[in-house]
Write a protein that binds this DNA or RNA. Structure first.
Lengths: 111, 111
DNA sequence: CAAACCGGTTTCTAATAAAAACCAGTTTTT
DNA sequence: AAAAACTGGTTTTTATTAGAAACCGGTTTG
């Protein structure tokens, strides 16, 4: 393959690349801890969506899901792990680089 | 939903968001016209991948696929349409904005 | 007491990315 | 001149998965 500077897009972190998860990750990156209702109100995602995407993020080790009882009711809170922060930063930096390269990209050898 | 500045990620153009297609689009954005073999050599994508992703991009009206004979052999070339350029620019600007907003929330990279 | 509500989870369906298999024709090998 | 290998792709197959909807065990409300 060539030395096209956009090639790194092919190895971008797909867990974070998914828009719904990127949104969740960006929220958890900024806030230290949020709960289910916060995500529901803040993101416009459905309940099912939040449950499955947060589970996936937990499976990948990017976030931690804590469940507790408040009185008799369940309460779920979400926190980003150190690994999650690292991967999120790496994703953002990679995407940023790619975009900058697109803006800078000059004519490649043509057909 | 809240007024989180990252929310626009949810309406990002998914046709372009797919890494393989973003790579193809970025190549076509920089070069006026490329052929199948160029994409094959430049991108590390498989033949099947190139065929299906370029077809999808054509279905969406983002690129035009031209087929011709060179001697007795088929030859396929790909060109970005005006709509494709517009959407690609819009995608890049949108992603850029989103990343900037993420950095504004926290700290910029490479600090 | 039943019906609606709450905070979630599980199930179902359709879309789809990627690789592999395939294909029609062409060139090379023997 | 057959057979084999190569070209430039396309179609098929397989596995994953995003999203919505249905569900669920409490709990408050009418």
């Amino acid at each position: 393959m060539g030395n096209n500077p956009i090639i790194p897009i092919l190895t971008i972190d797909r867990i974070i690349h998914e828009p719904a998860r990127m949104l969740i990750m960006s929220i958890l990156y900024a806030a230290s801890e949020v709960d289910f209702l916060f995500l529901l109100n803040e993101t416009d995602l459905t309940k099912g969506n939040i449950a499955t995407h947060t589970r996936k993020l937990e499976e990948e080790g990017y976030i931690k899901i804590k469940k507790e009882f408040i009185g008799k009711k369940t309460h779920s809170t979400y926190v980003m792990t150190t690994a999650g922060k690292k991967c999120f930063k790496a994703y953002c930096e990679s995407m940023y680089d790619i975009l900058i390269n697109i803006y800078d990209y000059k004519q490649p050898p043509n057909v």
